[in-house]
Structures are given as structure tokens and as C-alpha cells.
């Protein structure tokens, strides 16, 4: 297990290195010098940046300086927000995105497992049909539409109640988090529900469930200890991609609900061509996602004994 984790970590570091390299060379292929773009860069920042990145030096040397800086966790200074370090921006705004994302993924995973198990239990009966219709809807409607409709719903709900139950946007209290997290997790929850359902139905035909029945175990024990436990495994395997989906989905939700998370910042940086912020957040997000996938794989190792001992 230790060797496995180590191998995965080494792989992850290589991936992050590749992302960083690709980002660096892509940025250097941008037509013209990024510092000479039409963005007003003060002489002070320009001098700072040139000193930091050694823009007058040969490309390879710049690349190694960039890698060395990045390895020390130094992502540079924002182009558009003078005197603001990219590190500070990430540190300040990622916390918010992470809180939103964790809530959304928890909601999606628990909901997916619950609804999926329920539909499998009530196969082809009313609860199954209703939930699967909603699931098909959830899979077919883009996330940003959910975000828009969610906000519209909040406006109408508050109007109907006569007081503000959920704020329409912004960040700060728990009530700010609930609707955006629900909206963000909805698509993933629909996907996980479907996966859980098909997994449950597949397990329902497994030989070992017949064995469990032949042992005369009570139905709920068969369900809990034999069917559910094995049916969850595929859901755990797709948690990694789900985290990536929720992370990118978060960009939209933060934009729509005016949440000051890193995702919104990132989209803004792209729209404003704030290159240092783009590079910094790109590498940061890349590292984060790679790390999360490794964490999920390790978790999977604990859930599935067959992986644990390989």
C-alpha cells in the first residue's frame, strides 16, 4: 500500500510538472510579449516581473527560473491587481471554492447513493420512475441553467415568504452556501444516482447475493452487508472525475451567485488576460485535481480489498 501511494504521488508530480511546462510554453507562444500587451502595467510591476522571471534571459533559463519559483510555491504578482500576489489570491479565494465544492460533492454523493439504492429497491415502480425521470432531466440540463433557475427560484421563494430565507448571491453565512451547493451538486448527483442504480441492479443478479439468500439471512442484512457495500464501489471510482466536474461547475455557480471564490476569479482573469493569475491558478488547480484523484484512489483501496493488496 505504501509503495502504491508513493508510485501514485510520483506520477502525480510528473503530471503537475507537465501541466506547468505546457502552461509556460503556451504563455510564451502568445503573440507578442505578455508584458507588452495593452494592459496597463506600471513600470514598477514591470521591473518586478522582469526581475522575477528574467524576461530578458534565454527561454530555457526562464523556464527553469519559473519551475524553481513554482516549486517554492511562488506564482508571482497579478497583472491587473497591482501589488497583489497570486499566492494571496489563491489563499484567500480557494477556501471559499473548497467549502462550496465539499458541500456540493457531499450532497451529490450521499444523494446519489440514497436515490440510486431507492430506485433499485423500487425497480419499475412509481418511486423508481419518478426519480429516474428527474435523473434524466438532471443529466440533460446544463449546470448553468440549474444555476440560473436556482437563483430565479430563490427570488420567487423570498418574494413568496416575505423575508429572505436564502440570499440571492454573495457569501458569508451558511444560508449563502446551501442553494449554490445544491445547484452545483445536482448534475453530479443525477449521474451518480444512475450509476448507483445500475450497479445495484447488476449486483442484484450476482452469485454471492444468491449465496446470501441461501444462507437464510434477513433481507435488510443482505441489502446492507452484501448488496449496498458492493454496489457503492463503482460510485467511489468515479468520485475523482466527479470532483473535477464539480470544480469546473463551480466556476459557473460562483459567477451566477456572485460568490468570491477562486473559480470566479479564474474566469475573470481569463477574460482580462491576467496571465500570471491564469498560470498560477492553472497549475494550482491542476495540482489540486491530480492530488484529489490520488486521494480518491487511495480511499478506493480501503473500500475494495482487492485493490488494497495488489
Amino acid at each position: 500500500m505504501g509503495r502504491y501511494i508513493l508510485r501514485r504521488l510520483v506520477q502525480g508530480v510528473i503530471t503537475v510538472w507537465f501541466i506547468a511546462t505546457a502552461t509556460f510554453f503556451a504563455m510564451h507562444n502568445v503573440p507578442g510579449d505578455p508584458l507588452q500587451s495593452d494592459k496597463a502595467v506600471s513600470a514598477e510591476i514591470r521591473a518586478n516581473l522582469e526581475a522575477r522571471y528574467g524576461l530578458d534571459k534565454p527561454l530555457m533559463e526562464q523556464y527553469f527560473i519559473y519551475l524553481a519559483n513554482m516549486a517554492q510555491g511562488d506564482f508571482g504578482i497579478s497583472f491587473t491587481q497591482q501589488n497583489r500576489e497570486v499566492n494571496d489570491i489563491i489563499a484567500e479565494h480557494f477556501r471559499i471554492s473548497a467549502a462550496l465544492g465539499i458541500l456540493a460533492i457531499a450532497f451529490a454523493a450521499l444523494g446519489g447513493i440514497l436515490w440510486g439504492a431507492l430506485t433499485a429497491l423500487y425497480r419499475n415502480r412509481l418511486p423508481d420512475i419518478v426519480i429516474m425521470l428527474l435523473v434524466i432531466l438532471g443529466i440533460s440540463v446544463p449546470g448553468f441553467v440549474f444555476a440560473g433557475l436556482g437563483q430565479l427560484g430563490v427570488v420567487n421563494l423570498n418574494a413568496a415568504l416575505g423575508f429572505t430565507l436564502f440570499p440571492v448571491g454573495g457569501w458569508g453565512t451558511v444560508s449563502h452556501m446551501i442553494v449554490p451547493a445544491l445547484v452545483l451538486g445536482l448534475g453530479t448527483m443525477a449521474f451518480l444516482t444512475r450509476l448507483m442504480r445500475s450497479s445495484m441492479l447488476e449486483i442484484a443478479n450476482a452469485d454471492f447475493l444468491r449465496t446470501a439468500r441461501a444462507k437464510g439471512l434477513p433481507a435488510n442484512r443482505i441489502f446492507r452487508k452484501h448488496q449496498l457495500r458492493n454496489a457503492i464501489l463503482p460510485v467511489v471510482t468515479v468520485l475523482g472525475p466527479s470532483i473535477a466536474a464539480i470544480t469546473t461547475g463551480g466556476f459557473v455557480v460562483e459567477l451566477v451567485f456572485a460568490i468570491p471564490g477562486l473559480g470566479r476569479y479564474f474566469v475573470q482573469a481569463v477574460q482580462q488576460s491576467d496571465y500570471t493569475v491564469i498560470m498560477g491558478t492553472t497549475v494550482f488547480y491542476g495540482a489540486f485535481l491530480v492530488f484529489m484523484v490520488i486521494v480518491v484512489d487511495i480511499i478506493y483501496g480501503f473500500v475494495d480489498p482487492r485493490v488494497r493488496l495488489e
Binding site: I19, N29, A244, T248, I278, T282, Y285
Partner: peptide, 14 residues
């Protein structure tokens, strides 16, 4: 393992 959105942005810039 490569994050899609980030590479999308890189390609746009490229």
C-alpha cells in the same frame, strides 16, 4: 489527469 478547462484556455491563448 490533465484538467480540461485549463488546457482549453491554453489553446485559446495559443
Amino acid at each position: 489527469a490533465l484538467p480540461f478547462l485549463l488546457f482549453m484556455i491554453l489553446f485559446r491563448i495559443l
